[in-house]
């Protein structure tokens, strides 16, 4: 059994440092295995979040050698072990302790997005009819496990700290899932344009690259939302048509 060295960031909101720990490496191990081994043997109080260790809950997000990843789905065989493996907390959020960051901003943002509002049921028994083809794209967005890796890698949040003006890729995907839900009747375009800042995304697709669920965040969610906002607010023909519709309603 070989050993590898892990360079783990230890500290809190006041600051911290990297510390090196050894871990025994066995077949099939993932980064989280190494971390839990170090926690049990060398650093009982090493703070990190994890739950399912199966890539389903999205709790063990961290930066492994500088790349945002789920530690439970990152095999040691995928990374070079001849040099220390660096593990750091997510950069887009304030550190609580060691690898645990304060993610509460994400929960506050979600609360601000208007909830699902279905059309009246299609059948007398209170149920709806939807074709599989019509729910496919929403199901893609609903695969999201809220690991917030996309939020972490997004430079609007990570480097420019625009947390007050931009809801980030995760919540654009969430909005898209609601907006494209075949039953939904709510209109979220005005806030998408203003408070939620869809225009701040400049389509670098970093979020899509780190998504552990392979959601095509930029192409399938964000760009269509941008198009809807453009159609609603900037399309002169659309604007005229809307005025005419409103006039007729009056």
């Amino acid at each position: 059994m070989s050993t590898a060295t892990f360079r783990i960031w230890r500290g809190d909101a006041q600051g911290g440092e990297f510390r090196e720990y050894p871990a025994e490496v066995s077949e099939g191990m993932v980064v989280l295995d190494a971390l839990l081994q170090i926690q049990a043997r060398h650093a009982n109080d090493l703070a990190c979040r994890w739950n399912c260790k199966a890539g389903k809950c999205g709790s063990c997000s961290a930066e492994v050698n500088g790349i945002p990843r789920l530690m439970c789905m990152t095999r040691l065989s995928q990374i070079p072990l001849d040099q220390p493996v660096t593990i750091e907390p997510l950069k887009a959020f304030p550190v609580v302790r060691d690898l645990a960051t304060d993610l509460s901003w994400n929960y506050r943002v979600k609360k601000k997005i208007k909830p699902f509002k279905p059309r009246p049921p299609d059948a007398a028994d209170g149920t709806w009819r939807m074709a599989q083809e019509d729910v496919d794209r929403v199901q893609e967005f609903r695969k999201c496990i809220e690991c917030f890796l996309c939020q972490d890698v997004c430079h609007v949040l990570r480097e420019h700290h625009q947390h007050e003006k931009f809801i980030g890729p995760r919540f654009l995907v969430y909005t898209a899932a609601l907006e494209m839900h075949p039953l939904d009747t709510e209109d979220r375009l005005p806030e998408l344009k203003q408070a939620h800042g869809v225009g701040l995304c400049n389509i670098t697709k970093c979020c899509t690259k780190v998504c552990p669920e392979d959601i095509t965040i930029t192409d399938n969610a964000i760009i269509p939302l941008k198009e809807r906002v453009v159609d609603e607010f900037y399309d002169p023909l659309g604007w005229l048509a809307k005025q005419a519709r409103n006039a007729l309603k009056r």
Partner: peptide
């Protein structure tokens, strides 16, 4: 289960569009 659908859950569909 039907209540979950009314709250936004998107289950896989039968050919006639039901859960």
């Amino acid at each position: 289960v039907r209540e979950l659908e009314a709250w936004g859950a998107v289950f896989d569909r039968t050919p006639d569009g039901r859960i």
